[in-house]
């Protein structure tokens, strides 16, 4: 461990704001990059399924 206490870890030798702001932004961006296509994929499959069902009823 590079830190003695958990408070030291959070403080990052006075640079806590910069380090945690960076990692906060990073985690948020990565989460969005994964979450958005998953939601979009669900929506795409749902609307395609509905369309396929409509077409099979017609024919």
């Amino acid at each position: 461990m590079a830190f003695e206490t958990f408070a030291d870890f959070l403080n990052m030798g006075g640079h806590g704001l910069y380090v945690w702001l960076s990692y906060g932004l990073g985690l948020l961006t990565i989460a969005l990059c994964l979450y958005l296509p998953i939601i979009q994929g669900r929506e795409t499959r749902r609307s395609l399924r509905r369309r396929i069902q409509r077409e099979s009823v017609k024919s």
């Binding site: 590079a2 830190f3 990052m12």
Partner: peptide
Amino acid sequence: AFAPSDYQQGNS
């Protein structure tokens, strides 16, 4: 948490 801090830049 585990990598050593930089001797010039510290933890940033």
